[in-house]
Simulated scan of single mutants.
Amino acid sequence: MKLIYLLPLLAFTSPILAQQKALPAPLKLVTEQGGEIVSEFAAPANMKGYVADFKGQVITLYITADEQYLFTGPMLDANGNNVGEQAANDYATGPKAQKDWQTLESSHWIVDGSASAKRVVYTFTDPNCPYCRQFWQNARPWVDAGEVQIRHILVGILKADSLGKAAAIMSASNPEEVLKKFENDNLARTLQPLKNPPEHINAQLMKNHQIMMGVGARATPATFYHDANGAVKMQMGLPPASLMTEILGPRPSKLTK
């Protein structure tokens, strides 16, 4: 995995705590840096606990009874239980997960797989990412069987020519076929980065990058999927073999023709 620089979080309106002016003053330290206070929960010692979405990361915050001091991170009770864990998980697996999935749907992605596939998976892909190419290869049994459709959200973050290569793929008359050839290594060494991409392609790649930051992805591949219970989950980096069936479903025994 390769870490990337942070960009400002995509703004969204909190359905729970829309009136930021009513929040304790120390929370402005969070909101002024792009964070969003999304819920409040009971905390010990007359403090108030809050859940925040900070640049795609779900964090817990605590305000002292006099509303003058702010603490961040986990708070443990005498038994080692994380006081804010349930509230954070409720948001992460509920409103945030659904919002993130809708945001992914609005990105500019390239399809890999059948339109009638029962399962849809989103993954952020950089043309220079070897782990993205390995994930592509590892997913062939599911995609070729028509069971899974993978939607590749192209970004250009790893090398100087990543953006140009992503633009070259997205500008093609048949980007699905070009991406397929590229990930199969037929074009990996010969694809020339686009030096002056069309304005609309630049805009699409910028939106993809912003969405990547907004959903908390910090490396490629970053793969989003629904687990067996329907919850949205994210796998950062190349999924291990043990996780492939959770992401893509049962391994197909036969390929569809």
Rank of each mutant, 00 (worst) to 15 (best):
M1Y: 12
L3Y: 10
L9V: 07
S14C: 10
I16F: 11
A18V: 10
Q20M: 08
A22W: 06
A25L: 14
P26M: 03
E36N: 12
I37V: 13
V38D: 00
E40N: 09
P44E: 07
V51H: 01
A52P: 03
D53P: 04
Y62C: 05
I63R: 02
L70S: 08
G80I: 07
A88G: 09
T93L: 14
G94L: 08
A97T: 02
K99R: 15
T103P: 02
T103M: 14
K118V: 01
F124D: 02
D126C: 05
D126V: 01
Y131E: 01
C132A: 11
W136C: 04
P141S: 13
V143N: 00
G146C: 11
I150M: 08
H152L: 06
L158G: 00
D161A: 09
A166S: 13
A168E: 00
S173H: 12
S173Q: 15
N174G: 05
L179W: 03
Q192D: 11
K195G: 07
E199D: 13
L205Y: 06
K207W: 07
I211V: 14
I211L: 15
M212E: 02
M212P: 01
G214M: 06
V215E: 05
P221K: 06
Y225F: 15
V232H: 03
L243T: 05
M244L: 15
E246H: 10
I247M: 05
L248P: 00
G249I: 06
S253F: 09
S253C: 07
